[in-house]
Design a protein around this nucleic acid. Structure first.
Length: 764
DNA sequence: TCTTCATCGCTTTTT
DNA sequence: GCGATGAAGA
């Protein structure tokens, strides 16, 4: 094992009192934490009295593994904030009106519950999108503002109608959660903080129990997490916080960078250790990172240092569009593998928004490069998985309204909307949960016989399962699937095949759980593990695959070769950060890119494009402000691409731009109306497309569908209605509509010009 | 009641 | 480009 550096040693050897470890990227922070834990155990500290908290399951698992290697066979709490809070909350659920088998609601459960609330309050969900309202609620909870406080605060302030809606919906939402015996993610933290604040005896007892507390990524704590840590290291201040203010990237989630900056004020006795030696990256990479982050004004200057080689320069590549960018990245990776023997798993591709992964996935497939993505439709968000889990949830917690609503008529069993509404109103009147209401269904005054029968059958079904709730999760899940005949209607279509294999996968997850918890497999434990799981967990660093993820997800990881795509204005920095005109948000974007860059060990390539397809439209791009802040080797693609495009483009591109913050001013939208202006340029671009790199682009339509210019009299074809003639074009340019008379007899059909599948006939 | 289809609107990052 | 939504048909 490598020796620890002097400062690493200091942090490891420190035992009593508060300790703050400010650790730059790649400075061996995880190493320090794991060695510190091992050292404590070495000194005779009971491992059960050590509490190590991280933000992600992945970080917790990695830390666990590494500690286990240092001190085999000892049990201790290494977990995420949310998991730890769930544990505390289950043991003390009664104290805040929950039962210990409470459900943890996912984002989609939250949405469905809030929709119900809005419906009951007669609030129009189109005008007040549930997602936005939930964001506000989440924000409030992160800041430890309860529903009632929120409502009260609102009354005192001057009214904003949007806030007014939140103020009305929040308390109702909270009530419905409570009645469902459920919590959302934020509640896990907030309830625990509230619990400890109101019960000093309990707080003191837990504080005493966990003699040593370690918190990773302290710069990302929000107020709730901060309070929690403070309350658990009040009497015994053996707290070790590690973090790096330059890597604070969760401000949007309520994280407060202040928390780490004020650590020394909060804990006056604290000792400070700085880890500045970078063992990860080449000098070139570190230099770029350093230059970039130095532009942040709200920051304590900090030197980054490495003894590693200079290495290859950091490259910036410019491509014509996202397709070429993706293809060339894939080509570069292939090249790395073939000429330098780089393993697939040594390569990662990062981006600012998940939407950018699509093009990459296609390209990697074309180039036959194996990859894994940390995103997309998360496994637990898939409809069939949510269905299955909802059954389990309702078995575990019959009060769970979201689960009930989801599956009461799935598969269809004749319990339609009307019936559900009647039942729901009746339940509310009698202060019953839905399950209780079903048990009383015979007494319902207006429901017809058939509906009553269907509901009763459903009730019996669930009762049957409840009795079966014991032992193996896999068996329970199997019996549910069999009994409801979920797989029965499945045919050998692609969609059905996918659903079936997802359910297989879920059974595997259940089997896994059974295996890992041989002594105490509980339904609530299984469900908790699924609720707190994230798609990031599935990433396997040794799977022999290229890894695709957002820069947020990349924090804490490292790869020999890193590509960061879409380094463009409005992506990094993100449009939203630019819009608010808030310097701190802008600087957070810079930190995010800093995080991305500092993941790279030996090779780093940034890419940008000249135009990018976005939300189904193609927009011209502006180079990111940030690329000018670093010394990069600017390269214009390998062979031919773009070099021969119209000089107009090149001139536009190379002209130095004053810092531009208005997307609309500088980017030109390509629409049906100005397409003809761009036609020539587009043709030039198309001519330079990679020549069928792998034959799979054969189905590419001759022109972008949805971007035709339509005129009255033009002959068109519709996939459904066949041939027709345009009889009318109208509306504002961006929302033009065309009216078509079809040969088939369908006359006067109207379509949105930029959306419909209409194709002109006779012009190519 | 269920299914199909067109239309509409949104889309940062995550436990 | 996608899913959610609502209208219309089966």
């Amino acid at each position: 094992m490598e020796r620890l550096t002097e400062s690493q040693q200091t942090a490891v050897e420190h035992q009593f009192g508060p300790l703050l470890v400010l650790a730059g990227p790649g400075s061996g922070k995880t190493r320090v934490i794991t060695h510190r834990i091992a050292r404590l155990v070495d000194r005779g500290v009971d491992p059960r009295r050590i509490l190590a908290i991280t933000f992600t399951n992945k970080a917790a698992r990695e830390m666990s593994d590494r500690v286990r290697r240092l001190v085999p066979g000892r049990q201790m709490w290494i977990s995420t904030f949310h998991k730890f809070c769930a544990y505390l909350l289950r043991r003390n659920a009664r104290m805040i009106g929950l039962k210990s088998n409470f459900t943890i609601f996912s984002t989609s459960d939250q949405k469905s519950v809030l929709k119900q609330v809005l419906n009951d309050l007669d609030i129009d969900p189109v005008h007040y999108p549930p997602g936005n309202i939930l964001n506000q609620i989440s924000k409030a909870k992160n800041d430890l503002v309860s529903a009632n406080q929120f409502a009260r605060n609102f009354n005192e302030s001057t009214g904003d109608h949007y806030q007014a809606v939140v103020a009305r919906a929040f308390p109702e939402y909270q009530k419905l959660l409570l009645r469902s015996n459920a919590v959302d993610f934020d509640d896990l933290l907030m309830h625990v903080v509230q619990l400890l604040a109101e019960n000093n005896e309990l707080r003191a007892q837990i504080d005493e129990h966990y003699q040593y507390t370690l918190v990773d990524e302290y710069q990302d704590t929000n107020l709730a997490q901060y309070q929690l840590i403070r309350m658990l290291s009040h009497d015994q201040q053996n707290i070790c916080a590690t973090g790096d203010p330059d890597q604070s990237i969760y401000g949007w989630r309520g994280a407060r960078i202040d928390n780490i900056l004020r650590f020394e004020r909060d804990y006056p006795e604290s000792q400070l250790v700085r880890l500045q030696d970078n063992f990860r990256s080449t000098k070139s990479i570190l230099k770029a990172a350093d230059e970039l982050i130095a532009h942040n004004v709200q920051r304590k200057p900090k030197e980054l240092f490495t003894n590693n080689d200079v290495g290859k320069p950091v490259e910036l590549h410019t491509y014509t569009d996202g397709r070429e960018e993706a293809d060339m990245v894939a080509a570069s990776i292939k090249q790395l593998a073939e000429s330098e023997g780089v393993n697939w798993s040594d390569v990662a591709i990062f981006y600012r928004v998940n939407a950018l992964s699509r093009e990459l996935e296609l390209a990697l497939t074309r180039w036959q490069i194996p990859y894994q993505v940390a995103a997309g439709v998360a496994f637990y968000e898939r409809a069939e998985i949510k269905d299955m889990l909802s059954y389990l949830r309702l078995i575990c917690n019959p009060d769970d309204y979201a689960a009930f609503a989801r599956i009461v008529n799935r598969p269809t069993r004749g319990i339609g909307k009307q019936t559900q509404n009647k039942l729901r109103r009746w339940a509310a009147q009698n202060r019953w949960t839905m399950t209780e209401a079903i048990h009383h269904v015979e007494e319902h005054p207006t429901l017809n016989k058939r509906a009553k029968f269907a509901l009763k059958k459903f009730g019996e079904l669930m009762d049957h399962f409840s009795l079966a709730d014991s032992g193996s999760m896999e068996q329970l899940l199997r019996s549910v699937i069999d009994r409801i005949g979920y797989l029965k209607g499945m045919k050998f279509t692609e969609a059905d095949y996918e659903q079936t294999s997802n359910i297989e996968e879920l059974l595997t997850v259940a089997r896994q759980y059974d295996k890992e918890n041989p002594d105490d497999p509980t339904l609530e434990g299984f469900l908790e593990s699924t609720s707190l799981a994230s798609d990031l967990d599935a990433i396997d660093s040794e799977a022999g695959q290229v890894t695709l993820m957002t820069m947020h997800a990349a924090k804490g990881l490292e790869f020999p070769h890193v590509f960061i795509i879409g380094v463009e204005q409005n992506l990094i920095p993100h449009e939203r950060a630019l819009k608010t005109n808030d310097a701190s948000e802008y600087e957070e974007e810079r930190r995010l890119l800093f995080v991305g860059i500092t993941r790279a060990e030996r090779g780093l390539v940034l890419t940008q494009t000249r135009q990018r397809a976005f939300r189904g439209k193609t927009l011209h791009t502006i180079p990111s402000d940030f690329v000018r802040e670093m010394s990069l080797e600017q390269l214009n693609m390998a062979s031919g691409f773009g070099t021969s495009t119209s000089s107009q483009y090149d001139r536009d591109w190379s002209r130095p731009k004053e810092p531009a913050h208005d997307w609309n001013e500088l980017s030109q939208e390509i629409t049906v109306d100005n397409l003809h202006l761009l036609g020539d340029k587009l043709d030039a671009l198309k001519a330079n497309q990679p020549s069928d790199l792998n034959s799979s682009s054969a189905e590419e339509p001759p022109l972008d569908p949805g971007s035709f210019h339509f005129d009255v009299g033009m002959q068109v074809r519709h996939p459904r209605y066949g041939r027709g003639k345009i009889v009318h074009v109208s509306g504002p340019t961006s929302k033009a509509t065309v009216t078509v008379d079809f040969v088939s007899g369908e006359v006067g059909k109207t379509f949105r010009a930029d959306r419909c599948p209409l194709q002109p006939i006779g012009m190519r």
